[in-house]
Design a protein around this nucleic acid. Sequence first.
DNA 1: GATGAATGAGATTTCATTCAT
DNA 2: TATGAATGAAATCTCATTCAT
Lengths: 237, 237, 237, 237
Amino acid sequence: MLAVHTPSRQAPAGQRQRYSRGGIPAQQRVLRAQGRKTLRRLLEAGLAEFGARGLHAVSVDDVVRRAQTSHGTFYLYFSNKEDLFQALLRDALHEMKIITDEFPVVTRNEAGRMALRGWVHRFCDIYLTHASVLRIFSQAEIVGEAAWRDGLQTLFRLAEAITTGMTASRQDVPDGPGRHDELTALACLMMLERVNYLISAGVRLPREEMADRLTAILYAAFPAAPMAGGRGRTGTE
Amino acid sequence: MLAVHTPSRQAPAGQRQRYSRGGIPAQQRVLRAQGRKTLRRLLEAGLAEFGARGLHAVSVDDVVRRAQTSHGTFYLYFSNKEDLFQALLRDALHEMKIITDEFPVVTRNEAGRMALRGWVHRFCDIYLTHASVLRIFSQAEIVGEAAWRDGLQTLFRLAEAITTGMTASRQDVPDGPGRHDELTALACLMMLERVNYLISAGVRLPREEMADRLTAILYAAFPAAPMAGGRGRTGTE
Amino acid sequence: MLAVHTPSRQAPAGQRQRYSRGGIPAQQRVLRAQGRKTLRRLLEAGLAEFGARGLHAVSVDDVVRRAQTSHGTFYLYFSNKEDLFQALLRDALHEMKIITDEFPVVTRNEAGRMALRGWVHRFCDIYLTHASVLRIFSQAEIVGEAAWRDGLQTLFRLAEAITTGMTASRQDVPDGPGRHDELTALACLMMLERVNYLISAGVRLPREEMADRLTAILYAAFPAAPMAGGRGRTGTE
Amino acid sequence: MLAVHTPSRQAPAGQRQRYSRGGIPAQQRVLRAQGRKTLRRLLEAGLAEFGARGLHAVSVDDVVRRAQTSHGTFYLYFSNKEDLFQALLRDALHEMKIITDEFPVVTRNEAGRMALRGWVHRFCDIYLTHASVLRIFSQAEIVGEAAWRDGLQTLFRLAEAITTGMTASRQDVPDGPGRHDELTALACLMMLERVNYLISAGVRLPREEMADRLTAILYAAFPAAPMAGGRGRTGTE
DNA sequence: GATGAATGAGATTTCATTCAT
DNA sequence: TATGAATGAAATCTCATTCAT
């Protein structure tokens, strides 16, 4: 048999591996005034639609209809629906990072309590502002691997900040916060998240009072002295 | 019971409900041995698939493939995908109702604490058993109006049970639990839910220690004496 | 920071890697009478459409319209347009393999010449029968890597058969066909292919006379004695 | 000249010709330095892209990206993708016309053989230089009606030149080349085309040896004396 | 001349659901 | 009961082409 043949195409091989093609997801592109305006319209429309119906119930068509633009235009700015969601998520997580840094040192006195209360309020406000997106994010199933990782990181950073702020004023325990405290902070954070989720999902709860309760629970969850033996100990027992 | 709740979603109500005229759902039908077996296979397949991919990512096709049956057969037992989900959800909520009744009277002593701890453990176990379904349920957007209402009711009943159990031993306050306590209970319940959600979603947390923390927080959240003035007061201040 | 977290989802990880899903490309499936009929209709429609317009100019829509079936049905039998094409190509290549085996031993006399002529005729007939598909195949750019490889293999096998048949009767050269002969056979084969391509593409050539010419060229291309020194030598010069 | 050809495609005529009203093609316009530069960049980009992926797999976007210019600019120079292709094809066909005129008179001696060999070499070189375009052209389905006609004309001219050159030295047949010779020339030309196509498509063949084989076949295909009775006859049988 | 932006028709593919056997 | 087959609405995404600046 012919020894010469190498039955694999060299040159014209390229046509199969279509590299992403359609998209140039934009945002890298330099946008002029008009472009920026359209981008903003799309982001706003996405936020509104997602908030009203959730990620998968919303079609790209819904978004562009609300943004008063065309189907093709959408793909000029985002490579798909998820991409749009990620952009919105980025914003929300960014704000979360900001209030992470704002978590106060909670001292064991009225001032500390007030500071904590202020922060809880702020958390609730921010959550509700970005509720549409955060609500969707909290559904692990739905977001991509990368976004999920991003979000968890933000979550854990926040838990860390809470741990630090809540335990900073303990004079009698120089060794700093322990694992217990971190788990406590994480649990409290989940509580904050979910309560606000409920509210954003339409369950009518008295927001002011709820904020007070959340503050109280957080405050009580971190006793002045650290707990021993895996069980909490409130000072006076 | 919490007077606050309005268990109907405002915003996210809109998800598309096309294809309504499902075909004579069966289940009313008297099933013989073979029929019951098929039904069970479908339920198991549904649970497994939902757990692996979430409600909307699973197609009827996935379910019947796993159940080793045909497409047509599915519609002999369920009127649609959501119908299958509801059946699974019913089971999970049923178990939740059971542990609702098991919530102990938590006395202000070691025995009370132990009882509470036992219950928290049980809650976690049950949650994780039905995690696939509960996880999906906790995504308001996704389930139908009726199921959402059902679930919220279960939730509020549970919050109520917690309120009662945690405040029953207060001798000095004969007027029973107040609104504060109910909100506190609800918040704590959300914490329980979400922490278990995290675990079920694959975030590796030390389950034993976490259960201890949750117990401690719950315990601390309900001080022996009721709080006055909208702010919590831990006995020792 | 919390040491516990492993921010990667275990359980619900599955929803991303949608395994092919829609498709079950059929042909594996056991088809009943009706299914086989539909499959045949699709294949016939595909052949006709491809013949009329070429692979990429034909849409799935064209095929189902001609096959008098629905869009969804198409995907019950083929995973996409290319899949349909491959099925058709398989048939064509199969026939090519058959005539590969039929290539005669061409002796240096009238009988040999007649045998060769008969085979050339048969090649032309088969080519024209499957012209729609073979024409498309001969456009490397268009077919997938695997199909291309398959086709080239068939090609080289055919070239090999020609080499053998054309040189078998050489008594004076016991060492069999050389590299020269193989290249000659390949070149002649390409000639056969392309001439028939022209005809199938609508260029009106006298088929009978052309078959005679092709036979003559093939015959002349393989002189009774092998050529030396890289240049052909017809025995009698 | 071959009387047989009808250079109009019957069957494969149908490819969709939507979007006809292209925008004032330019090229009529007088181009200044900058304009000429842009035009050249576009042509080069087109050649490269077409070579890598084939006509229909390349989008205008691919071309302008490679040419480092904008989408709008493209339509300043070409009315559409096909227009760009035609421009490139024109160049290739032009070179083909040039070597058409260079086909030598092949005498029945070593000198004739050498002249033929030289020309075959040159043909191969030119083919491979313009391979991207010629390869696409040889896919009838793909090019427009006019281009196809143009190309066929070039083809037949070339066949005619070969006929003339190969039969010019026959002294014993004063009546010139017959229909047989023209068909032979056409067949040989198709062989040349397709072998070079294979090479350009990535099949590794020894180019030098192949050129030798092609020369030999061509030489052998035209015997010194014309053939009679529809069957080839090499003078000495 | 050049280019960012917009457009919308159309192609591909999926999937819940129904139906005939 | 069970199931293979069919359906068609709808979603996603692409891309040639036009336009305003």
